[in-house]
Amino acid sequence: MADPITGLLTLRQKNGWIFGFMLFSSCVSLTASFVLSYDALLIAANPEIVLNCDISGTLSCGTVGRSWQAALFGFPNAFLGLVAEPVVITIAVASLAKVKFPKGFMLAAEIVYLLGFVFAYWLFIQAYFEIGALCPWCLLVTLSTTLVFSTLTHVNIRDGNLFLPERVSKALQWGCRVGIDLLIVIVLLATVVLLIVSKYGSSLFG
């Protein structure tokens, strides 16, 4: 029992796994951002339009896309994804090709992506509690942003890129080795799933 677990956790620390996963997640996020940006244009052209992801009153990109939260900075939020995700893709591809980025660069990426991560969850909370509808592509952004942020944070902790005190850094590295970072991500995603099911269960399945 201990062997496959050890094997998996060792694999999790490898560059190939981390950056491969980061590449995959950021591509998913970019795709979702693209769809949401395109939908925003369709809604702008025709506010009454019924989008193909307007499946029901509960599952509706249109409802979320028409909210003020969907354009917090005056333009569709998804545009930020179109700008930011290609940078992550570049980092992932370059790192897979064994490029080693300076610590300061990785710290900057971490900080900017932290903002994106916080923003993604703020949007989820808004959609959940205020807008009262779920948008499948937005949820995909929430998921992929979580995955990109976790891999980016993992690699920055592992490589000591965050300019943290030695003791803190060592403790975090130990946490990553035993898989606590993975546990945090799983708990977060499980919370999101349970929140959605508890509120929308009947209208999702029924």
């Binding site: 201990a2 677990i5 050890t6 956790l9 080795r177 898989g179 546990l183 799983i186 995603l189 499980a190």
Partner: peptide, 15 residues
């Protein structure tokens, strides 16, 4: 590591 793994499996199972 083992405790964390079992916890993860439990959380996934619940979700």
């Amino acid at each position: 590591r083992r405790v964390v793994m079992y916890t993860i499996i439990a959380v996934v199972a619940v979700a």
